[in-house]
Design a binder for these strands. Sequence first.
DNA 1: ATGTGC
Length: 476
Amino acid sequence: MDPNRFTRLSDTAWQLEPTGKMRVPAIIYASEALISEMDDKVAEQACNVATLPGIVQASYAMPDAHWGYGFPIGGVAAFDADEGGVVSAGGVGFDVSCGVRTLHTGLTRECIEPVKPALADALFDAVPAGMGSTGRIHLRDQQMTRMLAGGAAWAVEQGYGEAADLDRIEEHGRMSGAEPQAVSEHARKRQRNEMGTLGSGNHYLEVQHITQIYDPRVADVFGLTEGQVVVSIHCGSRGLGHQIGTEFLREMAVSATRHGIDLPDRELACAPIRSELGQRYLGAMRSAINCALANRQIITHLTRGVFAKVLPEARLDLLYDVSHNTCKVETHGIDGQPRELYVHRKGATRAFGPGHPELPVSLRDVGQPVLIGGSMGTASYILAGTNEGERLSFNSACHGAGRAMSRHQATRQWRGRALVDELAARGILIRSPSLRGVAEEAPGAYKDVSQVVQATHDAGLARLVARVEPLVCVKG
DNA sequence: ATGTGC
């Protein structure tokens, strides 16, 4: 879109003043190059979000923003319940609590290279991937209820992983306020056999090596050094989150008028925070957050099992686990006053700065690890949250590269087999059940993640700490 | 993202 449409607040912040029914401005964080390439739909959707009741400060879009269902993907919006604020299923997205966790291995790239094909095959065998994939865990109803209430803490109780992991997970591995009884039978049924599975689309499990350190002081606290190997897992709440999203979107769309909400776009369906429907959605959505946390915890356990066999000297300690599709109750300073807000992040990563009380003591001095997954075969980045991020975006950053073209368009332009071969020639081993899925995820179908991350850094949303590049990628 | 449309 045309950058001249905006009031330029800085090199990387672009504002649209409130017009029509907008209650607050819309602010997009991006470089001039990124905003020029961005679809007009992003600004249109960010402005639509700015009309919703109880929105505070501004409607935001991150540098990787693109067109989504109702809210842009890469959108951030906070609402105050005291001012009639709303909660929106479309403001969280279908893949509730999709997120990334990164594990240390204690190994260097040299340790991996001789066993790389065996490691790739073993990970592909151990971690089910792809559309409709199921695992070895089958949850009966009572266990499902415990999982939805307990998250990664439940998974650790079941023997998946270690208690020490919980300290490095958002919400200490268990989202409070979950109400499993708000999750439909249908959603539970869809999830029954899907625990410990990656799913499809942009989800993956990657073995990566650290190729650059930008901030040695923070990298030291995060335990990152150049040449070291890490493992990153990107996935969410599978069929359960999707079903919850589908059901509540429908219910919120139907009831918006009854709640006295005037929607500029039906896809912005939402409900007052202080309504039966709003509370029921929050209870179900928090259950889906626990599902995603448990899912990543189980996949971590499966990954540790593979390394124990292939590279027994490895020790997979968790660096951090953070979601990028949530609505969370957080306290933020607004005009010098602390206020409790319902912060929607849809394709936006929470990025708490140094000193935040939610952070584990071991990380608190330097800020939260912000884990940004790149597209298949490209770099990923580890950043740290900032204090200025609170004022800028309620402590939110980008979440990835962001698609530059549709899946359909990508399959016309690339062949899965050729991509796998090209990446293998560059030392990157892809294992996927779907060559079509690989074509849809072609690196060329995404924006350049390094530009997105640089804009995030320049805007002050989060600070660059390290770059990692893939060695092995299990792709859904 | 997703039993890749109910």
